[in-house]
Design a protein around this nucleic acid. Sequence first.
DNA 1: CTCGGAGCCTGTCTGC
DNA 2: TGCAGACAGGCTCCGA
Length: 276
Amino acid sequence: MPELPEVQTISSQLDPLVRGQLITAVQVLDPRCAEQDLAELVGWQVSGAQRLGKQVGLELSRGADRRWLAAHLRMTGRMLWQPGSGPWQRPHLRALFELERGALLFVDVRRFGTLRFSSDRATLLPAGLDPMTRAFNARALGKLLGESRQELKVWLLRQDRLVGLGNIYACEILHLARLSPWRQAGSLSTPEVALLRRSTREVLERAVENCGTTFSDFQDANGNMGGYQRYLSVYGREGDVCKRCGEAVERVVQGGRSTFFCPVCQPGEHPVRQER
DNA sequence: CTCGGAGCCTGTCTGC
DNA sequence: TGCAGACAGGCTCCGA
Protein backbone atom coordinates (compact mmCIF):
# COMPACT_ATOMS: atom_id res chain seq x y z
CA MET A 1 0.00 0.00 0.00
CA PRO A 2 1.94 2.97 -1.18
CA GLU A 3 2.20 5.67 1.44
CA LEU A 4 4.65 8.56 1.53
CA PRO A 5 7.87 6.51 1.73
CA GLU A 6 6.85 4.20 -1.09
CA VAL A 7 5.81 7.07 -3.35
CA GLN A 8 9.02 8.92 -2.47
CA THR A 9 11.00 5.82 -3.41
CA ILE A 10 9.32 5.47 -6.78
CA SER A 11 9.59 9.18 -7.57
CA SER A 12 13.28 9.35 -6.66
CA GLN A 13 14.04 6.29 -8.75
CA LEU A 14 12.06 7.51 -11.74
CA ASP A 15 13.56 10.99 -11.81
CA PRO A 16 16.92 10.10 -13.41
CA LEU A 17 15.34 7.39 -15.54
CA VAL A 18 12.76 9.53 -17.32
CA ARG A 19 14.28 13.00 -17.15
CA GLY A 20 14.67 14.76 -20.49
CA GLN A 21 12.70 12.25 -22.55
CA LEU A 22 9.83 13.01 -24.88
CA ILE A 23 6.52 11.24 -24.49
CA THR A 24 6.18 9.61 -27.89
CA ALA A 25 2.95 7.66 -27.38
CA VAL A 26 0.29 7.06 -24.77
CA GLN A 27 -1.96 4.05 -24.49
CA VAL A 28 -4.89 3.90 -22.09
CA LEU A 29 -5.99 0.31 -21.59
CA ASP A 30 -8.45 1.01 -18.79
CA PRO A 31 -10.37 4.22 -19.48
CA ARG A 32 -11.53 4.34 -15.89
CA CYS A 33 -8.05 5.22 -14.64
CA ALA A 34 -8.16 8.70 -16.17
CA GLU A 35 -10.95 11.18 -16.77
CA GLN A 36 -8.84 13.34 -19.04
CA ASP A 37 -7.48 12.44 -22.45
CA LEU A 38 -3.94 11.36 -21.67
CA ALA A 39 -3.10 11.34 -25.38
CA GLU A 40 -2.80 15.12 -25.02
CA LEU A 41 0.54 14.50 -23.34
CA VAL A 42 2.18 13.12 -26.47
CA GLY A 43 4.93 15.50 -27.54
CA TRP A 44 5.59 16.80 -24.02
CA GLN A 45 8.99 16.34 -22.48
CA VAL A 46 9.48 14.90 -19.02
CA SER A 47 11.62 17.31 -17.05
CA GLY A 48 11.60 15.34 -13.82
CA ALA A 49 9.76 13.14 -11.35
CA GLN A 50 8.83 14.18 -7.85
CA ARG A 51 6.48 13.13 -5.12
CA LEU A 52 3.26 15.16 -4.93
CA GLY A 53 1.79 14.22 -1.58
CA LYS A 54 0.98 10.54 -1.95
CA GLN A 55 1.16 10.72 -5.72
CA VAL A 56 3.98 10.12 -8.17
CA GLY A 57 4.35 13.37 -10.10
CA LEU A 58 5.92 13.93 -13.48
CA GLU A 59 6.83 17.45 -14.45
CA LEU A 60 6.29 18.01 -18.17
CA SER A 61 7.33 20.83 -20.44
CA ARG A 62 6.70 21.92 -23.99
CA GLY A 63 8.40 25.15 -24.85
CA ALA A 64 7.52 27.55 -22.07
CA ASP A 65 4.45 25.54 -21.05
CA ARG A 66 4.43 23.34 -17.98
CA ARG A 67 2.21 20.50 -16.96
CA TRP A 68 2.20 18.00 -14.15
CA LEU A 69 0.98 14.44 -14.36
CA ALA A 70 -0.02 12.89 -11.04
CA ALA A 71 -0.37 9.15 -10.57
CA HIS A 72 -2.27 8.19 -7.45
CA LEU A 73 -1.45 4.58 -6.68
CA ARG A 74 -4.08 4.09 -3.97
CA MET A 75 -3.88 0.47 -2.89
CA THR A 76 -2.18 -1.60 -5.52
CA GLY A 77 -0.98 0.85 -8.13
CA ARG A 78 2.54 0.73 -9.50
CA MET A 79 4.61 2.95 -11.75
CA LEU A 80 7.14 0.74 -13.45
CA TRP A 81 9.98 1.79 -15.68
CA GLN A 82 10.75 -0.57 -18.55
CA PRO A 83 13.83 0.32 -20.59
CA GLY A 84 14.11 -0.51 -24.26
CA SER A 85 11.39 -0.88 -26.83
CA GLY A 86 8.09 -2.69 -26.64
CA PRO A 87 5.83 -4.39 -26.93
CA TRP A 88 5.07 -4.02 -23.23
CA GLN A 89 2.59 -6.39 -21.77
CA ARG A 90 1.84 -7.28 -18.24
CA PRO A 91 -1.19 -8.24 -16.19
CA HIS A 92 -3.33 -5.34 -14.94
CA LEU A 93 -1.63 -2.82 -17.18
CA ARG A 94 -3.93 0.23 -17.17
CA ALA A 95 -1.94 2.87 -19.03
CA LEU A 96 1.35 3.13 -20.83
CA PHE A 97 3.58 6.13 -21.57
CA GLU A 98 6.14 5.45 -24.25
CA LEU A 99 9.28 7.54 -23.92
CA GLU A 100 12.33 7.68 -26.12
CA ARG A 101 14.33 5.08 -24.21
CA GLY A 102 11.63 2.97 -22.62
CA ALA A 103 8.15 3.11 -21.16
CA LEU A 104 6.38 4.01 -17.97
CA LEU A 105 3.77 1.41 -17.09
CA PHE A 106 0.87 2.22 -14.82
CA VAL A 107 -0.15 -1.15 -13.40
CA ASP A 108 -2.98 -1.56 -10.90
CA VAL A 109 -4.65 -4.79 -9.86
CA ARG A 110 -7.59 -3.28 -8.07
CA ARG A 111 -8.15 -0.28 -10.28
CA PHE A 112 -8.41 2.29 -7.50
CA GLY A 113 -5.47 4.21 -8.91
CA THR A 114 -5.94 7.33 -11.02
CA LEU A 115 -3.98 9.48 -13.44
CA ARG A 116 -4.62 13.16 -13.96
CA PHE A 117 -2.73 16.18 -15.18
CA SER A 118 -2.87 19.91 -14.77
CA SER A 119 -0.97 23.00 -15.73
CA ASP A 120 -1.34 24.11 -12.13
CA ARG A 121 0.75 21.97 -9.80
CA ALA A 122 -1.08 23.23 -6.74
CA THR A 123 -4.40 21.75 -7.87
CA LEU A 124 -2.84 18.29 -7.80
CA LEU A 125 -1.55 18.64 -4.26
CA PRO A 126 -3.66 17.55 -1.31
CA ALA A 127 -4.53 20.23 1.21
CA GLY A 128 -2.58 18.83 4.14
CA LEU A 129 0.89 19.61 5.44
CA ASP A 130 3.69 17.44 4.07
CA PRO A 131 5.55 15.93 7.03
CA MET A 132 8.84 15.84 5.12
CA THR A 133 8.96 19.61 4.70
CA ARG A 134 10.53 22.16 7.02
CA ALA A 135 7.11 23.60 7.66
CA PHE A 136 6.27 20.45 9.58
CA ASN A 137 7.32 21.63 13.01
CA ALA A 138 5.79 21.14 16.42
CA ARG A 139 3.98 24.43 16.37
CA ALA A 140 2.40 23.73 12.99
CA LEU A 141 1.41 20.23 14.04
CA GLY A 142 -0.09 21.52 17.26
CA LYS A 143 -2.09 24.08 15.35
CA LEU A 144 -3.38 21.43 12.95
CA LEU A 145 -4.38 19.12 15.78
CA GLY A 146 -6.24 22.06 17.24
CA GLU A 147 -9.17 21.00 19.31
CA SER A 148 -10.09 18.03 17.18
CA ARG A 149 -11.89 15.37 19.11
CA GLN A 150 -11.16 12.79 16.48
CA GLU A 151 -9.25 9.73 17.57
CA LEU A 152 -5.55 10.31 16.99
CA LYS A 153 -5.01 7.35 14.65
CA VAL A 154 -7.99 8.31 12.52
CA TRP A 155 -6.78 11.91 12.49
CA LEU A 156 -3.33 10.91 11.23
CA LEU A 157 -4.91 9.37 8.14
CA ARG A 158 -6.60 12.60 7.12
CA GLN A 159 -4.91 13.86 3.98
CA ASP A 160 -6.44 17.30 4.47
CA ARG A 161 -4.37 17.63 7.66
CA LEU A 162 -1.17 15.66 7.08
CA VAL A 163 -0.26 14.30 3.69
CA GLY A 164 1.24 10.91 3.12
CA LEU A 165 0.40 8.71 6.07
CA GLY A 166 -1.54 5.51 5.62
CA ASN A 167 -2.50 2.71 7.92
CA ILE A 168 0.95 1.16 8.24
CA TYR A 169 2.89 4.27 9.18
CA ALA A 170 0.14 5.75 11.34
CA CYS A 171 0.31 2.62 13.50
CA GLU A 172 4.10 2.62 13.58
CA ILE A 173 4.36 6.30 14.45
CA LEU A 174 1.95 6.02 17.36
CA HIS A 175 3.79 3.01 18.71
CA LEU A 176 7.13 4.80 18.54
CA ALA A 177 5.60 7.83 20.25
CA ARG A 178 3.94 5.60 22.88
CA LEU A 179 0.64 7.32 22.21
CA SER A 180 -2.69 5.57 22.34
CA PRO A 181 -4.51 5.52 18.99
CA TRP A 182 -7.70 6.45 20.87
CA ARG A 183 -6.43 9.68 22.35
CA GLN A 184 -8.38 12.68 21.18
CA ALA A 185 -6.21 14.42 18.62
CA GLY A 186 -6.64 17.83 20.21
CA SER A 187 -5.83 16.58 23.70
CA LEU A 188 -2.08 16.21 23.22
CA SER A 189 0.15 18.23 25.51
CA THR A 190 2.91 20.37 24.04
CA PRO A 191 5.58 17.74 24.80
CA GLU A 192 3.38 15.06 23.27
CA VAL A 193 2.92 17.08 20.09
CA ALA A 194 6.70 17.46 19.86
CA LEU A 195 7.10 13.74 20.42
CA LEU A 196 4.54 12.94 17.73
CA ARG A 197 6.31 15.20 15.28
CA ARG A 198 9.68 13.63 16.05
CA SER A 199 8.30 10.10 15.77
CA THR A 200 6.58 10.88 12.47
CA ARG A 201 9.81 12.12 10.95
CA GLU A 202 11.85 9.26 12.37
CA VAL A 203 9.55 6.56 11.03
CA LEU A 204 9.15 8.17 7.62
CA GLU A 205 12.86 8.90 7.20
CA ARG A 206 13.88 5.38 8.07
CA ALA A 207 11.21 4.00 5.76
CA VAL A 208 12.44 6.18 2.91
CA GLU A 209 16.02 5.04 3.59
CA ASN A 210 14.80 1.48 3.26
CA CYS A 211 12.81 2.11 0.09
CA GLY A 212 9.45 1.68 1.75
CA THR A 213 7.50 -1.27 3.06
CA THR A 214 6.41 -4.23 1.02
CA PHE A 215 3.62 -5.82 2.98
CA SER A 216 1.81 -7.50 0.14
CA ASP A 217 1.83 -5.46 -3.03
CA PHE A 218 4.33 -2.66 -3.14
CA GLN A 219 7.00 -2.64 -5.83
CA ASP A 220 9.29 0.24 -6.63
CA ALA A 221 9.88 1.73 -10.07
CA ASN A 222 12.12 -1.20 -10.98
CA GLY A 223 9.79 -3.88 -9.67
CA ASN A 224 11.76 -4.50 -6.47
CA MET A 225 10.42 -4.88 -2.93
CA GLY A 226 10.90 -2.35 -0.16
CA GLY A 227 12.99 -3.08 2.91
CA TYR A 228 11.20 -1.44 5.82
CA GLN A 229 8.95 -4.40 6.67
CA ARG A 230 11.69 -5.83 8.88
CA TYR A 231 11.47 -2.72 11.04
CA LEU A 232 7.72 -2.87 11.57
CA SER A 233 6.96 -2.78 15.28
CA VAL A 234 3.23 -3.39 15.34
CA TYR A 235 1.64 -3.34 11.88
CA GLY A 236 0.60 -6.81 10.79
CA ARG A 237 2.02 -8.31 14.00
CA GLU A 238 -1.13 -9.18 15.95
CA GLY A 239 -0.28 -11.71 18.65
CA ASP A 240 3.47 -11.31 18.18
CA VAL A 241 5.48 -9.78 20.98
CA CYS A 242 6.08 -6.06 21.11
CA LYS A 243 9.72 -5.53 20.23
CA ARG A 244 10.03 -2.99 23.03
CA CYS A 245 8.27 -4.56 26.00
CA GLY A 246 7.40 -8.14 25.10
CA GLU A 247 3.64 -7.76 25.46
CA ALA A 248 1.44 -9.22 22.72
CA VAL A 249 0.56 -6.77 19.97
CA GLU A 250 -3.19 -6.29 19.58
CA ARG A 251 -5.42 -5.42 16.66
CA VAL A 252 -8.67 -3.50 16.99
CA VAL A 253 -10.86 -2.12 14.22
CA GLN A 254 -10.90 1.66 14.39
CA GLY A 255 -12.70 3.78 11.83
CA GLY A 256 -13.24 0.69 9.73
CA ARG A 257 -9.56 -0.23 9.56
CA SER A 258 -7.18 -2.33 11.55
CA THR A 259 -5.22 -0.56 14.24
CA PHE A 260 -2.22 -2.44 15.60
CA PHE A 261 -0.84 -1.33 18.93
CA CYS A 262 0.88 -2.44 22.11
CA PRO A 263 -1.45 -2.11 25.11
CA VAL A 264 1.51 -1.65 27.47
CA CYS A 265 3.58 0.84 25.49
CA GLN A 266 0.51 2.73 24.37
CA PRO A 267 -1.73 2.76 27.42
CA GLY A 268 -5.14 4.33 27.34
CA GLU A 269 -8.81 3.63 27.05
CA HIS A 270 -9.83 1.73 23.98
CA PRO A 271 -12.91 -0.13 22.83
CA VAL A 272 -13.23 -3.83 23.41
CA ARG A 273 -11.71 -6.00 20.79
CA GLN A 274 -13.94 -6.32 17.77
CA GLU A 275 -14.00 -8.96 15.13
CA ARG A 276 -13.52 -8.08 11.54
C1' DC B 1 -18.75 21.99 10.48
C1' DT B 2 -17.77 16.86 12.06
C1' DC B 3 -18.31 12.05 11.94
C1' DG B 4 -19.38 7.29 10.47
C1' DG B 5 -20.40 4.12 7.04
C1' DA B 6 -20.96 2.41 2.19
C1' DG B 7 -18.90 1.70 -2.05
C1' DC B 8 -15.27 1.15 -5.27
C1' DC B 9 -12.15 -3.16 -6.83
C1' DT B 10 -9.96 -7.97 -7.15
C1' DG B 11 -6.54 -11.46 -5.47
C1' DT B 12 -5.90 -14.19 -1.52
C1' DC B 13 -7.13 -16.44 2.48
C1' DT B 14 -10.41 -18.87 5.69
C1' DG B 15 -13.99 -21.83 6.96
C1' DC B 16 -17.69 -24.87 5.98
C1' DT C 1 -11.84 -30.36 -3.08
C1' DG C 2 -14.79 -26.51 -4.01
C1' DC C 3 -17.07 -22.60 -3.17
C1' DA C 4 -18.84 -18.58 -0.63
C1' DG C 5 -17.62 -15.00 2.05
C1' DA C 6 -14.30 -12.15 4.52
C1' DC C 7 -10.52 -9.26 4.10
C1' DA C 8 -7.01 -5.79 2.65
C1' DG C 9 -7.45 -0.07 2.69
C1' DG C 10 -7.03 5.11 0.17
C1' DC C 11 -10.33 7.92 -1.07
C1' DT C 12 -14.98 9.97 -2.25
C1' DC C 13 -19.61 10.44 -1.44
C1' DC C 14 -23.65 10.74 1.33
C1' DG C 15 -26.54 11.21 5.29
C1' DA C 16 -27.01 12.21 10.24
